[in-house]
C-alpha cells in the first residue's frame, strides 16, 4: 500500500497546477481592478458590489429559477426511469444504464444543435404538428426550449446516482415492509424512497451544479438575448474582457453552490 501511495504524488502535483493555481488567479482577479494585467495590483470589493445591481441580480434569480425547475423535472423523470431500470435483472440493468449514458458520449454542442433542428419553426416538431393539421408553434428562444435542452442533457446525472442507491438496496428491507403489512405504494414511500435519499441528493446536486453554470444551452436554445449566470460569466471573459468582474461572479456562484450542498447534506443528516 505504501508503495502505491507514492504513485499518487504526480497526480497531486498535477492537480495543484491545474486546479489550485487557476483558483488563486481567480481570487486575485476578483479582488483587484487592474484589468487583465497583473502588474500594478489594487485591491477592491467593487467587483462584488457590482453584482448587487438589479440587472445582474435578475440574471441570478432567473438562473436559480430555471435551475430549480430543471432539478425538479429531472428528479421526477430520473427517479421514475431509475426505478424502472432497477426492476430488471442485473445484466439487463447494466445494458440499460449504458444506454442512459449514450448521449453523454456525443459532444454536447452536437446534442444541442439536434434540439434546434427539432424545435425550430420549420423543425421536426412543427412539421409533425402541421401534418396533424395543427397551427405551428414557435418554440425556439423560449424558457421551454432551454428547459428541454437542459433536462435532456442532465438527466443521466440524475438517473445514475439514484439507480445506484436503488440497485444496491437490500431486497430484505422491501420484504420486511411487506411482511409488516405495507402494500407496494406504502413500501415505496416509507422505505424505498427514504433509503434512496443519498442517491437523490447526489443527483440533485449534480444537476443543479450543471444547470446553474451552463452557458452553451441557453446560448443556442435561448438565443442571444437569453442570459443566465453561465452566459454572464462567459461574456465577461470572452466578449467584454472584464476578467475581474467575471471572476467575482464565478466566486459568488461557487460560494452559493457550496452552501446549497452543505444545507442539503444537513437536511439529510437531520432526517436520519
Amino acid at each position: 500500500m505504501r508503495y502505491f501511495k507514492k504513485l499518487v504524488r504526480p497526480y497531486i502535483a498535477w492537480s495543484a497546477v491545474v486546479i489550485i493555481i487557476p483558483l488563486i488567479m481567480m481570487l486575485l482577479y476578483a479582488f483587484t481592478n487592474s484589468g487583465n494585467s497583473l502588474l500594478n495590483i489594487q485591491f477592491t470589493f467593487e467587483n462584488f458590489k457590482r453584482f448587487a445591481e438589479p440587472v445582474y441580480l435578475n440574471v441570478f434569480l432567473k438562473s436559480l429559477k430555471l435551475g430549480l425547475l430543471t432539478v425538479a423535472i429531472c428528479l421526477v423523470l430520473g427517479y421514475t426511469l431509475a426505478y424502472i431500470i432497477a426492476q430488471f435483472k442485473e445484466s439487463t440493468q447494466n445494458v440499460l444504464i449504458l444506454l442512459v449514458t449514450v448521449p453523454m458520449w456525443i459532444n454536447m454542442l452536437l446534442r444541442t444543435y439536434a434540439w434546434i433542428s427539432i424545435l425550430s419553426d420549420n423543425g421536426l416538431l412543427n412539421a409533425l404538428l402541421s401534418k396533424l393539421g395543427l397551427e405551428p408553434v414557435s418554440m425556439m428562444y423560449t424558457d421551454f426550449a432551454v428547459m428541454i435542452g437542459q433536462v435532456c442533457d442532465f438527466l443521466p446525472f440524475m438517473i445514475i446516482p439514484i439507480h445506484t442507491s436503488l440497485s444496491k438496496m437490500d431486497k430484505s428491507f422491501i420484504e420486511a415492509s411487506y411482511d409488516l403489512g405495507a402494500n407496494p405504494v406504502q413500501t415505496f414511500f416509507k422505505v424505498v424512497f427514504k433509503l434512496s435519499i443519498p442517491g437523490v441528493l447526489n443527483g440533485v446536486i449534480m444537476v443543479f451544479l450543471l444547470s446553474i453554470s451552463t452557458f452553451v444551452i441557453p446560448k443556442l436554445l435561448g438565443g442571444g438575448q437569453y442570459v443566465l449566470m453561465g452566459n454572464l460569466i462567459e461574456s465577461q471573459f470572452v466578449s467584454v474582457g472584464d476578467w475581474n468582474f467575471g471572476s467575482a461572479i464565478s466566486i459568488i456562484l461557487a460560494v452559493i453552490i457550496l452552501f446549497a450542498i452543505r444545507w442539503m447534506k444537513k437536511v439529510d443528516a437531520a432526517d436520519n
Binding site: 430484505s172 428491507f173 420486511a176 415492509s177 411487506y178 403489512g181 405495507a182 435519499i197
Partner: peptide, 29 residues
C-alpha cells in the same frame, strides 16, 4: 400477497430499517 397475511417474519439478517430508530422500527406495522 405477504402484506395481507397474518404472519410475520424475523429475517435472517434482521432487516431493521436503517432510517428509523428502535421505536419507529417496532411501530412500523
Amino acid at each position: 400477497p405477504p402484506y395481507k397475511r397474518e404472519v410475520n417474519t424475523v429475517f435472517q439478517k434482521y432487516a431493521l430499517f436503517p432510517h428509523l430508530d428502535v421505536f419507529e422500527n417496532i411501530a412500523f406495522g
